[in-house]
Amino acid sequence: EDEQEEDGEEEESERSEDQLKGVLDEDTAAEGLHTLGYSAPGTEYVYLHLSLPGRELSDISILSGYIHLQKMELSSNKINDLSCISHMPYLTELNASKNELTTYFNFKAPKNLKEVDFSHNQIPKMHDLSAYQSLTKLLLDFNEIDEIRGLEQCHSLTQLGLSHNRLTAIRGLENLPIRILNLSFNQIEKVNGLKSLKTLQRVDLSNNKINSLQGLEGHQLLDVINLEDNQVAELSELKWIEGLPLLRVLNLLKNPLQEHEDYWFSAIFMLLQVTELDLKKVSVEEKVAAVNKEDPPPEVVAAEDHRSQVLYNTEQPQRVLD
């Protein structure tokens, strides 16, 4: 009987341990608190930041009581519910990457929430984010999203990450102030839907199914384009980006157009403003060589004619004068 009782107690304690496993308690939360400062209303001296990455956490409901937090780092846990954030009106930064989220922003919007990282989760759909008008940075890379939507009212959004999702088209970004856009590793076939992004500076469209650069023209501030591993086959496609005044970095590795015999010098000639092509620095000498090859100035033509004439003469049989 005693043995049975002991076994029963052991089972019960194991069960209670299992129940507590993944549940955030006050002691663990205290370990993650740092950065003392005045609360947003300026009435109290409190901890402003919480950092608890990689703690196997699945239940963080206790954080509902931590109303003064301004930054929260919860990456690499097992969290699927962030409703506690409804009680954090002063939160400005949230990192909930590498968790088990299947929905996002399922909490009352903190008025000044600016930066959010929900990458590496299991989010299938984007929802209306009109309540989150202070958002400047939204990372949703490595999820299961098939359509960009709900961002119409995000008038402060300057960085958007949606790489490694299931997108087939670029839409839903009209008139946003996006400067950095990452749509790599999707199934996108056409570069449309970017025309109204007047502040775009960097775009990553690598590892898609794009065969034309049409849609990238007219972006006066664009300085980095990554199109590695796509299906651009014709050198003539470069005409769409040759008028971009600030373009400095272009990556077209693993595209069929690289197989053209004169690809390197033709690309440099069409894009003389570029300083890095296909992960290689473009030297001044290469730019000069490209111009001399593709559109040589008169003195270069004359020099080449002279060289040809000299070569021709030396190859003729020489007659010894009597």
Score class of each variant (00 low, 15 high):
residue 41 P to A: 11
residue 154 C to T: 06
residue 104 Y to G: 12
residue 78 K to Q: 10
residue 37 G to N: 02
residue 322 D to K: 03
residue 55 R to K: 11
residue 147 E to S: 12
residue 157 L to W: 08
residue 113 L to F: 01
residue 139 L to R: 06
residue 100 E to P: 08
residue 111 K to S: 12
residue 6 E to H: 11
residue 27 D to W: 11
residue 247 L to W: 04
residue 15 R to F: 09
residue 9 E to T: 15
residue 273 Q to W: 10
residue 56 E to S: 13
residue 244 L to N: 07
residue 214 Q to K: 13
residue 165 N to D: 07
residue 208 N to G: 03
residue 274 V to A: 09
residue 23 V to Y: 07
residue 104 Y to D: 05
residue 227 L to G: 00
residue 167 L to I: 03
residue 306 H to D: 01
residue 265 F to N: 06
residue 308 S to F: 10
residue 150 G to A: 09
residue 227 L to E: 05
residue 99 N to L: 09
residue 67 I to R: 15
residue 218 G to W: 04
residue 195 K to S: 08
residue 238 L to D: 04
residue 105 F to V: 02
residue 154 C to M: 12
residue 18 D to W: 10
residue 226 N to T: 04
residue 279 L to H: 15
residue 53 P to S: 11
residue 272 L to F: 15
residue 267 A to F: 09
residue 155 H to V: 11
residue 316 Q to S: 06
residue 198 K to H: 13
residue 39 S to L: 08
residue 308 S to C: 14
residue 62 I to D: 01
residue 6 E to S: 09
residue 66 Y to R: 00
residue 37 G to S: 06
residue 253 L to C: 06
residue 284 V to P: 05
residue 192 N to R: 13
residue 284 V to M: 04
residue 145 I to F: 02
residue 219 H to C: 09
residue 73 E to S: 14
residue 228 E to C: 02
residue 58 S to G: 12
residue 46 V to D: 01
residue 257 L to Q: 12
residue 168 T to V: 07
residue 129 L to I: 14
residue 312 Y to I: 06
residue 109 A to P: 05
residue 25 D to Y: 05
residue 145 I to N: 01
residue 269 F to T: 05
residue 137 K to C: 08
residue 168 T to R: 11
residue 151 L to W: 04
residue 109 A to R: 01
residue 302 A to G: 06
residue 14 E to D: 08
residue 154 C to Y: 06
residue 183 L to G: 00
residue 185 F to K: 12
residue 124 P to K: 13
residue 271 L to R: 09
residue 34 H to D: 01
residue 85 I to P: 02
residue 112 N to W: 11
residue 275 T to D: 15
residue 116 V to D: 06
residue 197 L to H: 00
residue 319 R to M: 11
residue 8 G to R: 12
residue 212 S to G: 06
residue 38 Y to M: 10
residue 63 L to P: 03
residue 111 K to N: 15
residue 178 I to M: 01
residue 204 D to K: 00
residue 126 M to T: 09
residue 278 D to F: 11
residue 74 L to M: 08
residue 246 L to Q: 10
residue 249 V to D: 10
residue 17 E to Q: 12
residue 118 F to V: 10
residue 268 I to L: 13
residue 88 M to V: 00
residue 19 Q to L: 13
residue 127 H to R: 09
residue 177 P to A: 05
residue 47 Y to E: 05
residue 299 E to C: 15
residue 281 K to H: 12
residue 163 S to A: 14
residue 29 A to T: 00
residue 288 V to N: 10
residue 235 L to Y: 10
residue 125 K to P: 09
residue 79 I to E: 00
residue 200 L to M: 00
residue 109 A to D: 05
residue 300 V to T: 10
residue 96 A to V: 09
residue 159 Q to H: 03
residue 73 E to N: 10
residue 123 I to L: 07
residue 297 P to H: 07
residue 5 E to W: 09
residue 13 S to M: 14
residue 84 C to I: 01
residue 48 L to H: 00
residue 208 N to Q: 06
residue 72 M to P: 03
residue 159 Q to D: 04
residue 222 L to M: 04
residue 166 R to K: 03
residue 268 I to Y: 06
residue 301 V to R: 03
